[in-house]
Design a protein around this nucleic acid. Structure first.
Lengths: 138, 138
DNA sequence: CATAAAGTTTAGCCTTGGCTAAACTTATTA
DNA sequence: TAATAAGTTTAGCCAAGGCTAAACTTTATG
């Protein structure tokens, strides 16, 4: 068993913090993409996007409203707030850079799509910058 | 906003599956490492390792026992089962390969330690093989 | 315009994964 | 050997994130 890295509670603390906002990042990314494609976003669109129930989406949207990342009245379309848009663009960019990076490494497209969905939330900006440079020179 | 990748419910389903076993992977890796360093593993060791409370560790160990990944009697040291050891070695190898990969890319050691802690759970074996090859030729 | 279909929200459930506090057990020390 | 310290387990709490079912609302259709 070889271990060159060092573990520490900080590593897990950071991971936990990243997990806490994972759902917000996924939802604003989804809303941004659906809005871009269709012009408006409904709960049923997010149900299909994530493969979860209507009740789950409804509940999660309420959390995003509470975080002031989206706006939505009862039975009305869902909109990103300014802060939501910022987070959406940031998350999408990170996701795209990582995805591109994986495909340029030689990871099959389908695998890169799956892996990047989970990995994206754990990439720091330093790591992302290095991946971006790699993308630009490969 | 540029998106070259395609999203799908499968991506989230796979991510969710990976998240479901994340805690098991972290715990068996930790138990393996602590046992390697100290010769035995107590709850308080895992508390320090993860930076969580004694009650949390106690509860989580019960889940690993239920999954037959560890063995432990009340107030006794914690041991990995055969299945636990296999998962621990597999997780550690994946973690180490990813960590090495990040450092070889130029990611500072501390950042690589933090990022790999979360990323490791979302790396498929195809992606890992490519990273391994990269490590061997850089 | 009434009915049906589709979509949304609420209620209540479950598991997970964290916490504090209290009670229990083991190990250490004076 | 008794007292103290350290470690462990249990109880009960919380929020998150999923579900089904039922009730509500909007949209589409005949």
């Amino acid at each position: 068993m070889k271990i060159s890295r060092s573990s520490s509670p900080e590593n897990f603390s950071t991971t936990k913090t990243r997990k806490n906002i994972e759902l917000f990042e996924d939802y604003v990314e989804a809303i941004n993409e659906i809005n871009f494609n269709k012009g408006f976003v409904k709960n049923v669109d997010l149900c299909k996007y994530f493969g979860v129930s209507n009740a789950t989406v409804c509940k999660n949207i309420k959390r995003l409203i509470k975080e002031e990342l989206v706006e939505s009245e009862k039975y009305r379309s869902i909109f990103l707030t300014k802060a939501g848009k910022i987070l959406a663009e940031k998350s999408n960019t990170r996701h795209e850079v990582l995805y591109k990076f994986l495909t340029k490494l030689g990871v099959p497209i389908r695998i890169a799509e799956i892996d990047s969905e989970g990995m994206e939330h754990h990439v720091s900006k330093e790591t992302l910058n290095i991946m971006k440079k790699f993308n630009n020179s490969n």
